[in-house]
Computed example of a mutant assay.
Amino acid sequence: MSRTSKRHIDGRYMLAAGLVGVIAASSVYASDSFATRAAAGQQQVQGAATANAQQQAQGATGANGQKLVQVAANANALQHQAKADTLNQLRLFQGTSAGYELDQPFTRAQGAVMLLRLLGLEDDAQQAAQSPVFADSAAPYWAAPYVAFTHQKGLVRGVSETAFAPDAPMTGAQFITLTLRALGYAEAEPEQASALAVTAGLLSGEQAGQLTGKTHFLRDDMVAVAYYALTTRLKSGEQTLIEKLVDTDGAVNRELALQSGLYSKPASNDPLDHIEAALRRALNESRR
């Protein structure tokens, strides 16, 4: 065996060993420049969560209790910011002129847009010449082509035969339903979204209960659901959503997907590729 080949194999084993060490230490893996921000956010979240749990165990009250609430809120914001950065780099989430606006309500029009991105159909919607069905979301409304396209495909419904209410807030159950449809669960409806999300592996029971029970479903809540969806297997079981977007649809750039840490190279006969893929899957599960 040549020295070059030996160094390559040794390097691959060192990479695998390094990934194992990362999982054992419960830290966040970042393989690239933009994912570093996400990793830093996740590490801060873990530290804040640990401090939060310790103080709660000690029965913090009064001023300390108020500080706990603030710590938890800051940790939650950092976590969602990191996920938003990853979705943004994958071209699956955009902000507004005011930034991500993660603390703002998530609207029905925004839900239609996110659904198309998760389906890899955003370009199709922009290029399609669909006649508007709803007067309140016809051109020049910014999301007119998205609403028309998703309705024509039977993916969304209006609040009536003539109105879509595009700027009305979307509920957690409604967006989880759309996300499940992107995962291949065409039968998904808001009434059973929580239970189906758990069955599909999209959310834990606690997460599903919290998100569907929220009075106000915000943009940061949407970011969390969309982020988790990327590493969730489709109903067919053949691929995760990010694998479909990269390998089947070509809607997400492969290099960007690899850099995000949410996507692994297609399977090969190299055992180290299988080890690396398994480790990445374990890391993605640990981030939830």
Rank of each mutant, 00 (worst) to 15 (best):
V159W: 08
S160Q: 08
E161H: 07
E161I: 00
T162Q: 14
F164V: 02
P166T: 10
P166A: 05
A168N: 13
P169M: 10
A173Q: 07
A173I: 01
Q174E: 15
F175V: 13
I176R: 02
I176Q: 02
T177I: 05
T179F: 09
R181P: 11
A182W: 04
A182T: 09
G184A: 12
G184T: 03
E187Q: 15
Q192W: 05
A193M: 06
S194Q: 14
S194V: 01
L196R: 09
A197Q: 01
V198P: 00
V198L: 09
G201I: 08
G201A: 13
G201N: 11
L203M: 05
S204E: 00
S204D: 00
G209H: 10
T212N: 09
F217K: 01
F217Y: 12
L218V: 01
D220Q: 14
D221P: 08
D221K: 02
A224G: 00
Y228P: 01
Y228N: 11
L230S: 06
L230R: 05
T231H: 14
T231V: 12
R233V: 11
R233W: 06
L234N: 09
L234W: 08
G237R: 14
E238Y: 11
Q239I: 03
L241K: 05
I242M: 09
I242Q: 05
D247C: 06
T248Y: 03
G250L: 03
G250V: 08
G250D: 05
N253D: 15
